[in-house]
Design a protein around this nucleic acid. Sequence first.
DNA 1: AATGAATTGATGCATTTGCATCTAACTCGA
DNA 2: TCGAGTTAGATGCAAATGCATCAATTCATT
Lengths: 143, 143
Amino acid sequence: MTDHKNPKTCQAWARLMRVSGKLLQDIEADLKAANLPPLGWYDVLLEVRNAEPKWLRPVDIQEKMLIQQYNISRLIERLVKEGLVIRKSCDCDKRGQYIVLEPAGNDILDKMWPIYKAAIDKHFGDKLNVAEIDSLTQILSKF
Amino acid sequence: MTDHKNPKTCQAWARLMRVSGKLLQDIEADLKAANLPPLGWYDVLLEVRNAEPKWLRPVDIQEKMLIQQYNISRLIERLVKEGLVIRKSCDCDKRGQYIVLEPAGNDILDKMWPIYKAAIDKHFGDKLNVAEIDSLTQILSKF
DNA sequence: AATGAATTGATGCATTTGCATCTAACTCGA
DNA sequence: TCGAGTTAGATGCAAATGCATCAATTCATT
């Protein structure tokens, strides 16, 4: 890293943190205002649905979502308690388990998406033109 | 928001959340590995130092950091307990208080910065060229 | 086959965050 | 100047997160 680059880097970093944090707050707030669960629930349920007909294990979801093992363990615990997914024992590895989407989980996904989509557009997409969105996507792909 | 734009928007959004979350995790981990406090402490202390010789009140810091009132209240509580800042009664508004940096707080800032800076470069700056950093900064300025 | 290392998932405990609400102080219009 | 409405900050309680560690299994090497 050359010296002249660092000030710009730090400014970009600070701005990235501010913007992404604020966007997350605003979008979560829209979900909450609609009496819907937090984004973490959506992410897990969507991963599970997208993987179908394959079944995912907690460790798979954890890797996709880049979160800690104990966090996915407890997140799944909450989803099971709400009847959104069930645990299914895993024949090939007796330590493991499969996480299977229940109809209620599918319904929640379908209820959340319109609100989520609208919030993404309102707080994020509407502020950028197509070129900026493409450019942002390209830059973020470097990570 | 036009229909053809939305899929790109959602992809950019998803990528933004993934990347910013991961970067935050990695950089916080570097601080923790060096036995240093979390980024939130740095942000508060830096706001207080940058404002000098003016004194900030909790509500000022809260607005700059875009966090909840109860979060800044408790964050300051921790900093006071560690002797990094002190509360000073505010003559012009008896509800309020000023948050004043103590020498220990200044030291912590100076200790954290080299680690923080190196982490920003390593996890963020080094992955992008100058044009990309400029472009990212410009795009984020739209928010 | 045996055993040491690695992986999967859970959990007790401490810290942090979120939510609702409180008190005290300030503001502003009648 | 009075009183309603607003603002600053704190806090009790519940929920979520972080940390360390555990038990059960699987893998890999000899």
